[in-house]
Write a protein that binds this DNA or RNA. Structure first.
Lengths: 127, 127
DNA sequence: TCCACTAGGTTTCTAATGGTGACTAGGTAG
DNA sequence: CTACCTAGTCACCATTAGAAACCTAGTGGA
């Protein structure tokens, strides 16, 4: 198994990183960690996601082998999304990211306030 | 310090997560971890990043208090970007993400091949 | 019978974002 | 005088994210 280099423009790792470092991916994998979840259950839990983005992101994840999609021929049809073993290793690195955001949001907002105040005082950003 | 909830649409954590879960952020903070780096040094090491995205991402990171920008009045002017303590805690969660991408890229590419092959055989995605 | 609702999506349209390449200031080297 | 260095910005175009409507297939209620 060859290792990629995300700093090289032409390496596919770059594109994979772009796909995986994504807001919706973080939130979806965070939920799938506890077991299979249905489409609309995800939609309800990830407040504010559109059906389009949810189905698009899920399809990407499925294509990359990170999530498995199972259709049950009930009526109406039931579709379950489950995390795969590889997906679980990704989730293990994404969950800390989500937790970091939740824990540091106040610090960030504070920094923004200070930055914006300083900018108004001296908007001379050019050297 | 109040904790955010990334699953709530109206929580600022959502927006922060979006900013932080970003390809360029991952790559920039990965480099700044080893010490301050200059603008063009970053540009050379992150192959394929445009000046616009680099300066835009750096400014966001600075605004959020994750990197510090220092201008030295040399000639030509030298601008150094350094990671802040908070930024370092973020980098600690982003680096594993980059490493994950580099280590699993082959697996992902393989999964894509198989998915696309199966899709051509039976593109009937609707239930 | 007609309407409303479920699940799991796709389509369409618009607004925002990302990337490309040219351009800038101020100064030095050839 | 021209070219090149730094660290950016600006205008432009292509892609994308998001909002909202529509779709299929079926159930339940008035």
């Amino acid at each position: 198994m060859q290792k990629g280099n995300a700093y090289a423009a032409e390496c596919p790792t770059r594109q994979a990183l772009d796909r995986v470092a994504d807001k919706w991916t973080v939130l979806i994998l965070g939920l799938l960690g506890d077991g299979p979840v249905r489409f609309n259950a995800l939609r309800r839990q990830i407040q504010g996601i559109s059906q389009k983005m949810l189905s698009q992101t899920l399809r990407s994840l499925e294509r990359d082998g990170l999530v498995a999609r199972t259709v049950y021929p009930t009526v109406p049809v039931t579709v379950e999304y489950a995390i795969t073993p590889v997906g679980r290793t990704l989730a293990a690195t994404l969950t800390p990211l989500r937790l970091w955001a939740e824990e540091n949001i106040e610090t960030i907002l504070q920094a923004r306030l200070e930055y914006d105040r300083a900018e108004r005082a001296a908007p001379d950003h050019a050297a």
